[in-house]
């Protein structure tokens, strides 16, 4: 059973996003190439953009049902289908960077939050097979923010977990489709938006906002890749080992690509006359404390797995503060 099989398996993936998203070139495609290489060409993956086979919002369920062989997206998108995705996406003011996120999710046997997510995925006929840190999901505003009180009363586009964070900080979250944000900020319907930093130039936000507030509400926003369980089980043991074998490597490789993309996007903003504000460590600590007290319990309440995951996350932060 060692070595590549004779037969080539052809898969069709449809993520929750299209080619315009940073997750396409910096997350999913490098992973697909790594899979094809690691399996010595015995697994070939065709990637279709969101909307081609099903809408982005339906893509997770389509992979679970076997309409596609795989999916990529964020826990903030499919969180309504699998609450544990929120753990993989990253907590409000949770992990600070790629290394911390890896440690709490997979790297350190004391925590292994990833196992909770994998179990939830298997229960939904999916196998979690890829992960990447897209960098900060931050605030992009027309007003200065240096402390959390500065958010008070401001109307910002914020969806799902962002909205929970924003209202916890005293802001007024407004829900609207991605396509409407640009015009709404330009006209003044809203005063800013939460967004993944590497993607702000994709949305031309530098034209309408004045400030980027780092590290935002989530310093390390993650994207996940899932494979339909039947498609996964139809592979040989060798193929599955090869694919599992690239999980960590592609995580760090693609996270670095995203980090470079974040720098580029911020430079584009600066070139357009915008200012990048980095919150002080004390302010981040204040926001983290408030998030743990008021935002995290809402994630924990969504499922048993989430409750357990949030506890482990807290323990991880405590251990880290204690200097372990």
């Amino acid at each position: 059973a060692d070595g590549p099989p004779d037969e080539v398996t052809e898969w069709v993936f449809q993520p929750a996003f299209d080619q315009t998203d940073a997750g396409w070139d910096n997350g999913l495609i490098p992973w697909v190439e790594a899979v094809e290489e690691a399996t010595q060409g015995t697994v070939k993956i065709r990637v279709e953009p969101a909307g081609a086979l099903v809408s982005g919002a339906e893509a997770f369920a389509a992979a679970a049902a076997g309409q596609t062989d795989g999916y990529a997206g964020w826990g903030s998108v499919y969180g309504g289908d699998m609450p544990e995705g929120m753990l993989a996406f990253g907590m409000a003011m949770g992990a600070n960077n790629t290394e911390e996120a890896w440690e709490v999710m997979w790297g350190n046997p004391d925590y292994r939050v990833g196992d909770i997510v994998q179990e939830a995925a298997h229960a939904r006929n999916l196998h979690w097979a890829g992960w990447t840190n897209q960098g900060p999901n931050a605030m992009f505003t027309k007003f200065r923010v240096e402390k959390m009180e500065d958010l008070e009363g401001h109307k910002m586009r914020a969806g799902g977990p962002q909205a929970i964070f924003h209202s916890t900080m005293g802001g007024a979250p407004v829900s609207m489709n991605g396509g409407e944000i640009y015009t709404a900020i330009k006209l003044g319907t809203i005063e800013g938006t939460y967004w993944d930093t590497g993607g702000i130039d994709d949305m031309s936000f530098q034209e309408v906002i004045d400030y980027a507030i780092m590290p935002g509400w989530n310093p390390a926003q993650h994207q996940e890749i899932f494979i339909n369980l039947q498609s996964w089980n139809a592979l040989t043991d060798w193929q599955r080992e090869q694919i599992d074998g690239i999980f960590e490597e592609t995580y760090f490789q693609t996270s670095q690509m995203h980090a470079d993309g974040v720098e580029e996007a911020l430079q584009i903003l600066r070139d357009a006359g915008g200012e990048v504000i980095t919150l002080s460590d004390e302010e981040v600590a204040r926001m983290r404390e408030k998030s743990i007290a008021e935002v995290w319990p809402q994630v924990a309440a969504a499922s048993k797995g989430n409750a357990k995951g949030v506890e482990i996350y807290k323990k991880y932060l405590e251990d880290k503060a204690a200097g372990n």
Partner: peptide
């Protein structure tokens, strides 16, 4: 709007 988002062109 559809085109602007996909083509990364300012919708305005």
């Amino acid at each position: 709007i559809f085109y602007g988002l996909l083509a990364k062109v300012s919708i305005g």
